[in-house]
Computed example of a mutant assay.
Amino acid sequence: MIAVESVERHFGSIRAVDGVDLEIRRGELFGLIGHNGAGKSTLFKMMLGLLPVSAGHIRIDGEDIHAGNFREVRRRIGYLPENVVLYDNLTGLETLRFIAKLKNCSREECVAALETVGLSHAANRRVREYSKGMRQRLGFAQSLLGKPQLLFLDEPTNGLDPEAIRAFYATLRGLRDSGVTVVLTSHILSEIQERVDRLAIMAAGKIQALGTVQSLRERVDLPLRVEVRTEAALGGALTAILGSFGITPRPVEAATDRLVFDCPRQLKMKLFGAVAGLGEGVADVSIFEPSLEDVFFGFAD
């Protein structure tokens, strides 16, 4: 759906985007993460055709963003900017009807869009009476007008409460399953780590890593965190097993039946085989993969 080839964007001597190559598949839920100033929003705006590229090429659905036919492609794109600016004196429904006219799409879609984002009850309230989260949901609703086949969402969950975030991602999954391609950024990494199909990590204007969350975990080779609960009498035996693998348990306050330690990924199966040798004295084993935040810092630092 999106092909980015050797793309650069310069602001004077600053290379905001510096030689990015990226392909995003049709019907994919794709995450783009990075520090403030990493180049994410600039790349977004170039893919939308709002900023010219300094070098390289971007094609969306087979069309170059600077070709004459790209205007038709843009009609199939929805965009939610990081900072949503709306007319305070209009109601939610009037806002969508105004945008629908700009997009040359049916006014009948407006009611359905408000229902999708959970704002039907506030359709006739002035936007100035909306909370921050409601404004964000209204911004999402406008991005859905025209039945876009490609969505760009820049920090889309700003101001949303946990229930609204859950509903938002449920909507995205439904859109993806219907063939819509979704590209989003978020600073809340724990929120997206189990929800995107693939992601790219940007730093200093470059793509530092690209893949599924699990493939990036394996590439950065961070240890697993493991917690083992045993009978108190077996604590010494378990500590000895860990020592034979060169592993030192973490200190755990007031715990005589629990050991927590970091396990190198390549030792996982051998170590668990040795622990299993303790038999029924092992009550439970919990394994925790590195979080997306850990992975991010592993690549971005």
Rank of each mutant, 00 (worst) to 15 (best):
E231H: 10
R229H: 10
S244Q: 15
P162Y: 13
I247W: 13
L150A: 04
V226C: 07
L145Q: 05
L242G: 02
L160G: 04
A209F: 11
I192K: 02
L184E: 00
S244H: 14
V226F: 09
T181N: 05
L172T: 02
D177M: 06
K268P: 05
Y169E: 01
I201F: 15
G174Q: 12
L234C: 00
V252D: 00
M269R: 14
I188T: 08
L234Y: 00
K206E: 08
A200C: 09
G211K: 09
L234W: 01
I241R: 05
T248N: 04
V226D: 01
L222G: 04
T256A: 07
L210D: 08
Q208G: 03
L242P: 00
A203D: 10
L222C: 06
G243T: 07
G211C: 02
A254P: 07
D221E: 14
E218S: 11
G139Y: 11
V228Y: 07
S190T: 12
R173Y: 14
L175W: 08
I201D: 02
T171Y: 15
L238H: 09
G211T: 09
I188D: 03
L144T: 00
Q266T: 14
Y169M: 03
R229L: 02
A255Q: 15
G211I: 07
R195D: 02
T157K: 11
A167S: 14
L151H: 06
R250T: 10
R265E: 13
P264I: 06
E155K: 12
G236P: 03
A240Y: 13
A209W: 13
A164T: 05
Y169S: 00
A240W: 11
M202P: 01
G246P: 01
L153R: 01
P223G: 08
K147R: 14
Q149I: 08
D257A: 12
E231V: 04
L184W: 13
P156D: 07
E218I: 09
A167H: 15
I188A: 08
F152L: 05
S143P: 08
F168C: 00
A254W: 13
P162S: 06
I192R: 03
P249H: 08
E194T: 12
L210N: 12
T239H: 08
N158H: 12
T185F: 10
E194N: 14
D161G: 09
F140R: 01
G139I: 04
Q136T: 06
Q208P: 05
Q136I: 00
A254T: 08
F261Q: 01
L145R: 09
L271A: 06
E163I: 11
L184N: 01
E218R: 15
E155R: 11
R195M: 04
R195Y: 06
I192Q: 00
A167E: 15
D262V: 00
A232Q: 04
G146Y: 11
L238K: 07
Q193L: 09
G179C: 07
Q208A: 10
V183R: 01
R225Q: 13
A203Y: 14
S190Y: 11
V252L: 14
P251D: 09
A167T: 10
L138V: 12
A240C: 06
L224Y: 15
E253Q: 14
Y169Q: 03
S143T: 02
Q266K: 13
A200I: 07
D197Q: 08
P249C: 07
G159F: 14
L189V: 05
T248Q: 09
R217D: 04
L224T: 02
G243N: 10
D177C: 06
R265M: 12
